[in-house]
Simulated assay, not measured.
Amino acid sequence: MKKKYFLASLLVVVLAIAVICLILWLKPDNSSTVTSANSATNLSNSMLQAKAGSDPIANEASSNPTEAAEGLSASLQDTEIDCALEANPAGQLILNVNIRRCFEYFLTQIGEKSLGSIDQQVKQHIQHNLPASAAAQATDLWQRYLKYREAEGKLQNSGANTDPDHLQRVLDQLTQLRQQYFNPAELNALFGDEMTYNQYTIDRLSILDNKSLNAAQKAQQLKQRFAQLPPTLQKNLEDMSKLQDLRALTQQIRQKNGSKAELQQMREQLVGHEAAERLEQLDQSRANWQSRVQDYLNQRQTILASNQAPEDKQRAITALRERQFSDDAERQRAVTYEHFRDQGTNINELLQ
Rank of each mutant, 00 (worst) to 15 (best):
D165W: 07
S36N: 05
S212I: 05
L208G: 08
L350Y: 08
Q251V: 09
A319P: 00
Q251F: 11
L43N: 10
T175L: 08
Q221G: 05
L95I: 05
E186M: 08
L282Q: 13
L93V: 02
T35M: 03
L15C: 03
I118L: 01
D342N: 14
L320N: 04
D312G: 08
D193I: 02
Q173I: 05
R315H: 01
L76A: 10
P89V: 15
L167T: 01
Q324A: 09
A50P: 00
E311T: 11
Q224G: 02
D165G: 07
A305I: 00
C21H: 14
H125T: 02
Y105W: 13
G53S: 13
R331N: 05
N198D: 03
T318S: 15
T35P: 04
I347C: 07
T318I: 15
R178Q: 12
F103V: 02
S62Y: 08
T79R: 13
L167Q: 06
K313N: 02
Q251N: 13
S306M: 04
K313G: 08
M195T: 14
S285H: 10
A58K: 12
L10S: 05
S326K: 12
S133K: 10
R278L: 15
A61K: 05
D193Q: 00
L246Q: 06
A329Q: 13
H339Y: 15
S46T: 11
M195E: 06
D165S: 00
